[in-house]
Nucleic acid binder design. Structure first.
Lengths: 231, 231
DNA sequence: CGCTGGTTTGATCTTTCTCAAGCCGTGTGG
DNA sequence: CCACACGGCTTGAGAAAGATCAAACCAGCG
């Protein structure tokens, strides 16, 4: 739980009041384009993605509620990758942090977490087997969603198709499917109808080598700034 | 070529005067440990690396002369990954940028470039074939070294073993070896005795889909702050 | 001269991909 | 209410990329 001073909180609530919806599959940011304003994702899932000339597609990272996109601190920043909405989402302009050291710090921490996710993704793609990649990604998302207050017990809404999961993990959807089925049979993973349940997270976590990849409990922003359920 | 004001240049020269050597295989930074001071690499090659419990190893990114490590802007930063010297290196403390907006900007840009390299690495590992991974990495290093003034014509010193290259690319050294030999036979790559020559960079570059992965010509710091040859 | 670290080669095995088809649930128009 | 089109999931058979294991080679070096 990050502690923000009142002025920062006000700034966030104010920004959230300017939120607007963006439909699934729409681009929130386009690679190579100047960034008008950095964004804060309030609701839904998005992802950074790159598509190669021959159609191969790689998702770089996922953007979850509470995450920020396009926040760079040098002048005239340019988006380094396309960000696409995976579901219908709600976004708002990121409140300016000048004069608000608490926000500044929160953004800085958020950036460090982002980087940690990129590193985790590199480890997955470079040295994990298909099974490990799938489970590790799911655990990571579980933990991040958990910080955002979007996990109920040991299950959470998982809006990704197997195809998208495959394109995030450097696999084919066919292979993801087979591995998931295997995990289902063992009972280590329950993934039905856009809902994932992890019956035994601790044992899963120790089965996969997540070493220091663990998301630390320094949340960048208060869980779900404008969530309907809490506050 | 970044333009720094005089005070910033002085700060760098001053820091460089505090440089010290670190032997190959020594750790410059240890994952999970508090960062005393961020560092500037003046000479030699280093790499961010993670080793899994069962010994699998993945290099995350390479640190080249002029690059910085451990520069985080939140209080009490912790190293998110181990940085190890791949060759004998020369490092110095990174000059503090408070009160020096030019330096501040340079660091910020350097951070953005770092991120771009992580993204490039994700694309390589996720969607490139072995041949593409090797050539793409070599091209990236070529371009980065080029900005640092470490490329002569179309060749440069390449101190990595095939084993390390493999551990950077999510491959085995055996397979790297075979692919490299193939590239050698075609004449697209000449890699002998720690020296790489790219006879036809443009055609190579178009053969590999490096799309927007291209390193932009905003160099973070003046090429080789204290290089012996220039200045 | 014999180590040592790095490269090369061969044979075989495994993981993952490719292609192709079938299935299932949902939504839509007749 | 049915038909059928669509997106996503599932299954099978065969192919390919890359891993594994093991050994030989080769240069520099103490």
């Amino acid at each position: 739980m990050s502690s923000l001073d009142d002025r920062s909180k006000v700034a966030i609530v104010e920004a959230a009041s300017l939120s607007y919806p963006v439909g699934a599959r729409r681009e929130l940011q386009t690679e190579g384009q100047a960034i008008r304003s950095p964004l804060l994702l309030l609701n839904g899932w998005a992802a950074r993605v790159r598509v190669l000339h021959d159609g191969r597609r790689q998702f770089i990272s996922f953007v979850l509620p509470g995450d920020i996109m396009g926040h760079y601190t040098y002048p005239d920043p340019v988006a380094t990758s396309t960000v696409v909405a995976l579901t219908d989402v709600q976004v708002c302009p990121l409140p300016d942090s000048t004069e608000l050291p608490d926000l500044e710090r929160a953004y800085s921490i958020s950036g460090a977490l982002d980087e940690a996710c990129l590193v985790a993704q590199i480890i997955r793609l470079g040295r994990f087997t298909a099974r490990e990649r799938i489970l590790d990604l799911i655990i990571e998302l579980f933990e991040r969603l958990s910080l955002a207050g979007l996990v109920e017990g040991n299950s959470f809404a998982f809006p990704l198709t197997q195809e998208i999961t495959a394109d995030a993990l450097g696999l084919t959807s066919v292979h993801v499917n087979r591995m998931v089925q295997q995990s289902r049979r063992i009972g280590e993973l329950c993934w039905i109808a856009g809902q994932i349940t992890l019956p035994d997270l601790p044992s899963l976590r120790s089965a996969i080598d997540r070493s220091t990849t663990t998301v630390r409990p320094w949340s960048a922003l208060p869980p779900m700034p404008v969530a309907p359920s809490r506050n």
